[in-house]
Amino acid sequence: MEITVHHYIVISCLLFIIGIFGVLTRRNLLIILMSVELMLSAANLALVAFSRFSSHLDGQVAVLFVFIIAAAEAAVGLGIVIAAFRHTSGVRVTSWKELKG
């Protein structure tokens, strides 16, 4: 009963699918941002698992870059949430229909 890379890929896939499900079904902008964080974490788990089972540390360096990008994305995303809340006093994405391009 040894844990192989396959086990970690399955967990990573499940996390990614849960994240996509959240982005597609929820209408609260904050929860959509959290689901995006879940998808980034799924990618992180896959990167670390591959790094471990291929005996290279490059995957872990990539994960550190993903952390930095996630921090930047959260800061800008929450800034947008606050700016949008000021206009419509709500965070439901359906109330911003006029943003349709």
Binding site: A75, V76, G79, A83
Partner: peptide, 12 residues
């Protein structure tokens, strides 16, 4: 990160 900080401040 610097760009993100400036962007967040301008947006919010």
């Amino acid at each position: 990160l610097l760009v993100a900080i400036i962007g967040a401040v301008i947006l919010a």
